[in-house]
Amino acid sequence: MSVGLPRVGIVGVGTIAEALVTGMCAGGERRADFLLSPRNTEVAHRLAGRHRSIAIAADNQGVVDGSDIVFLAIRPQVARQVLSPLIFRAEQRIVSLVATFDVERLKPLVAPATTIARAVPLPPVADRLGALTLYPPLPEIAALLDGLGRLVLLDREADIDACLAVTALMGSYFGLLDSVSDWLSSRGLGDDRVRPYVGAIFNALGATAQARAADGFDRLAIEHSTPGGLNEQAWRELKSAGWTGLVRETLDLIHDRVRGQATLDDTLPSNRNQNGDRRG
């Protein structure tokens, strides 16, 4: 253990936690000494084998006992079960990655610790790409996350809930690319050409969106839609079919779930049949 470095514990070592730790250790950088829970043995040992700043605790209580800052990277469904037996210390800082737990809901589970932050990193932070959010903007936590992508510091917990809802569109994004790829494949193009082609198009558009975000995406939509051209027609047809409205309605539903006002079983009215059942 290095003198002067924060001791950071990770309770729950899944996909997001692996990406987060990988990003913080990228390029041999040593931002902290990390102590991982042993539950996901394969991931924990893979990380420990790559980075000298990482150790594996005997159990979750060992992670808490050996850490100044504790990241909670567990699923909401098991959060209460995992956290209730653990004994925290008053001076510890807690960073929750638990999607649907606000600070008030976490307080009794980590007491007597009272310094609680919420962060939303995404898988690309492993390569220091994409975006991640932090509420509140605690300097010590921000220093750990800085440079892992575009770090957005938030002053209101409501803002992190809204940003969290938007992250639910990752699967939809790749689903869109899959639909485009399937259409091309049905025209006789092989997957070895189709997928790199589609990936390259959308990768370039993503780079444009990031570089010119200040211009406004509505302006970019106009610039990429020549009057009377193919792009203008495609965008017109998708909007007329209600595509943009469905995105907003879906985000409203996900946002309600993040805030505990909806569940996994809730769905949009348009996705129910006359009997009120979910469409297959």
Rank of each mutant, 00 (worst) to 15 (best):
Q92D: 13
L154C: 00
A158P: 01
Q92I: 08
N275W: 09
H224E: 08
V194G: 09
P227E: 00
H255V: 04
K107V: 10
A262I: 05
T100M: 02
G190P: 14
R7D: 01
L264W: 11
V103W: 00
P269Y: 07
L20F: 01
R257D: 03
G199R: 12
R150M: 04
A58L: 00
L154R: 01
V258F: 12
T226I: 01
A131K: 11
G276N: 09
A262Q: 11
Q274F: 11
V13K: 04
T22G: 11
G23N: 12
G66N: 07
A117E: 00
M1Y: 09
G12C: 07
R75E: 07
Q77N: 13
E140T: 03
P6H: 04
F217K: 01
C163G: 04
A17I: 01
N203S: 11
E223D: 15
A213C: 11
L177I: 04
Y173G: 02
A234D: 10
G130W: 13
I116Q: 07
A44N: 03
A48E: 09
L122I: 14
M24A: 09
R248M: 12
R279V: 14
V247Q: 08
H51P: 01
I56L: 07
I69E: 09
N203Y: 14
L177G: 12
D65K: 02
V82M: 07
A211D: 08
I160E: 07
L189V: 05
L35H: 02
F202K: 01
A55H: 13
R248Y: 14
P6C: 06
Y197E: 01
G199F: 07
L122M: 15
R212C: 10
T115C: 06
S240M: 07
L177Y: 12
L72N: 06
G190Q: 06
K239W: 00
L145P: 08
R236N: 09
R272H: 13
F71R: 02
G175F: 01
L83W: 10
D256G: 12
R257I: 08
G149S: 01
L220I: 14
D265M: 10
L106E: 01
G149Y: 00
Q61W: 04
G175L: 06
A119N: 04
C25G: 12
F34E: 09
I141S: 12
S53L: 03
G229C: 08
V125R: 11
W235N: 05
G27A: 00
R80I: 15
A113F: 08
D218W: 13
A17R: 01
I69K: 02
M170H: 03
L177H: 02
T226S: 02
A168E: 02
V258E: 03
R257L: 13
E223I: 03
L154Q: 08
A168G: 11
D256R: 15
F217I: 03
L144F: 10
R248W: 12
G66E: 04
L138W: 05
A55C: 10
A55W: 06
S96E: 12
S185I: 09
R219H: 10
P76A: 03
A234H: 11
A241H: 06
D277M: 12
G14L: 02
N60Y: 06
A262M: 03
